[in-house]
């Protein structure tokens, strides 16, 4: 079975540095700041085994377990399953039709040089899950 990627809180932040080279599933290379919604959709289509889900932000609050982090609660996919993840405030998420967004666009700009919108309740983010077998 495909291996599971790490959760955002533990991912390598250099992915998000402005100018970082990202390889799409089509083989195309793009800079992280140039990615668009259809790049994710197309990559999931051709990669097989992965499915793009819509994850709507329903709550944003300071993490109680991990000071300095932000707890983001999402409702995911058609089943509206609720998922909470703790991330640094500068962690960017890709919002459908809008692009990179974080809880602290100022910190994202300082740390990564990546221009972000402010992530808010109601934003719908790109997430991926395993495609169920046919």
């Amino acid at each position: 079975p495909p291996s599971l990627a790490p959760a955002p809180a533990s991912s390598n932040p250099s992915h998000f540095m402005k100018g970082a080279i990202i390889q799409l599933a089509t083989g195309e290379l793009k800079r992280v700041e140039d990615l668009q919604t259809h790049d994710f959709m197309r990559s999931a289509e051709v990669s097989g085994g992965l499915k793009i889900d819509s994850s709507m932000v329903v709550d944003v609050r300071a993490s109680q377990q991990r000071p300095g982090l932000v707890s983001l609660q999402f409702t995911v996919g058609e089943q509206q399953s609720k998922v909470t993840i703790d991330v640094p405030p500068e962690h960017p998420f890709f919002v459908f039709g809008q692009g990179w967004s974080s809880c602290s666009p100022e910190r994202t700009a300082q740390l990564y040089g990546l221009a972000c919108h402010h992530l808010q309740v109601g934003d719908v983010c790109v997430s991926i899950t395993l495609q169920p077998p046919p």
């Binding site: 990627a5 998000f16 799409l24 290379l29 998922v83």
Partner: peptide
Amino acid sequence: NVEPRSVPVFPWHSLVPFLEPSHLG
């Protein structure tokens, strides 16, 4: 001779949250 620096290339799926099916049940 100067060796060319290798530029890291990251896969697209490393940029977005991977939600495990167990989270979604």
